[in-house]
Computed example of a mutant assay.
Amino acid sequence: MIVTDTHTHLYSEAFNDDRNDMIKRALDENISRFFIPAIDSTYTEAMFQLERDYPNHVFLMMGLHPTHVKDNYKDELKHVEDMLSKRKFYAVGEIGIDLYWDKSTLKIQQEAFKYQIQLAKKHKLPIAIHCREAFDEIFEVLETEKSDDLFGIFHCFTGTLEQAHQAISYNMKLGIGGVITFKNGKIDQFLKEIDLKHIVLETDAPYLAPVPFRGKRNESVYIIKVLEKLSELYNMPSKDIAEITTQNSKDIFKI
């Protein structure tokens, strides 16, 4: 059984004291594929170091996170563009719109999101979407960019069944993580109505740890709790869900 974590911030400062041990815990449980989203240029070197340390397991994305779209966002977008032109990445992400922390930057968040979608199309790459309190705004941009070469993952999907179908209509897989185990997460109430071919697993470590670790630091090995919950919802062995979702990740990332 191979398990794929399609979204994990292994370079986070939260892991500075035990990063290698934390990764080993995951590898020991057959979680052997880690897709690493970018935040901004200050983390690029740490991402490269991770890749050097774990070349067979770590696969990098490049992008500007919406909460880091600030006054210098054009410089940051130039960094993303330069990096994509210089070397291999497996997705453009994480990108999107976040209206939880700061609604005043909506216009430049939309601009940065659209620009990075176009970069992804140019390089024939998937996108990894971050959406927080911004489904309508995200869908508005996706509607203007929809095409056969728009595809990717709707990271940390927490929407309704209708929103799930809308995301899928834009060639997006749904990234399912710890929220599926939350009593108030709600997506567990309808997720089994979504075919597993549309789903990938993720942790978003060090954030959003699943039950029974909720509120603590998340790490990639906890994806097993997500797998167990999906096994319960779909009434299917965990190994089968791991196989299907890993194949879905291969279809997206082409590796």
Rank of each mutant, 00 (worst) to 15 (best):
L99K: 10
Y100W: 04
W101S: 15
D102P: 14
K103Y: 02
S104W: 05
T105A: 14
K107V: 14
K107H: 14
I108K: 07
I108R: 06
I108N: 07
Q109F: 02
Q109R: 03
Q110F: 00
Q110N: 08
E111H: 08
E111G: 08
A112T: 07
K114T: 12
K114R: 11
K114E: 13
Y115L: 04
Y115I: 09
Y115F: 04
Y115H: 07
Q116K: 03
Q116G: 03
I117S: 05
I117K: 03
Q118C: 11
Q118H: 09
Q118N: 14
Q118E: 15
L119R: 01
L119W: 00
K121I: 06
K121Y: 04
K121D: 05
K122F: 01
H123A: 10
K124Q: 00
K124G: 07
L125V: 04
L125P: 12
L125S: 01
P126V: 03
P126G: 04
P126A: 00
I127T: 02
I127K: 01
I127D: 06
A128L: 08
A128V: 15
I129T: 08
I129N: 03
H130D: 11
H130P: 12
C131V: 02
E133N: 10
E133M: 02
A134K: 00
A134E: 04
A134C: 07
A134W: 01
F135R: 08
D136I: 07
E137R: 01
I138N: 12
F139W: 04
E140V: 08
E140R: 03
E140P: 07
V141Y: 01
E143Q: 09
T144V: 09
T144D: 10
E145Q: 13
E145S: 10
K146N: 15
S147P: 13
D148A: 11
D149A: 09
L150F: 01
F151R: 10
F151L: 10
F151V: 11
G152I: 12
G152V: 08
I153V: 15
F154S: 11
F154T: 13
F154I: 10
H155Q: 10
C156H: 13
F157N: 07
F157E: 08
F157A: 06
F157S: 03
T158L: 02
G159W: 02
T160Y: 03
T160D: 06
T160W: 01
L161F: 15
Q163M: 14
A164T: 06
A164P: 12
A164V: 10
H165P: 11
H165Y: 15
H165T: 12
H165V: 11
Q166M: 15
Q166Y: 13
Q166P: 11
Q166K: 15
I168Q: 13
I168P: 13
I168A: 05
I168D: 10
S169R: 07
S169T: 07
Y170M: 05
N171H: 07
M172Y: 03
M172H: 09
M172A: 09
K173W: 04
K173F: 08
K173Y: 05
L174T: 06
L174C: 05
L174N: 02
L174G: 06
G175M: 08
G177F: 02
I180P: 14
T181P: 14
T181E: 05
F182H: 09
F182M: 06
K183S: 12
K183Y: 06
K183D: 15
K183W: 00
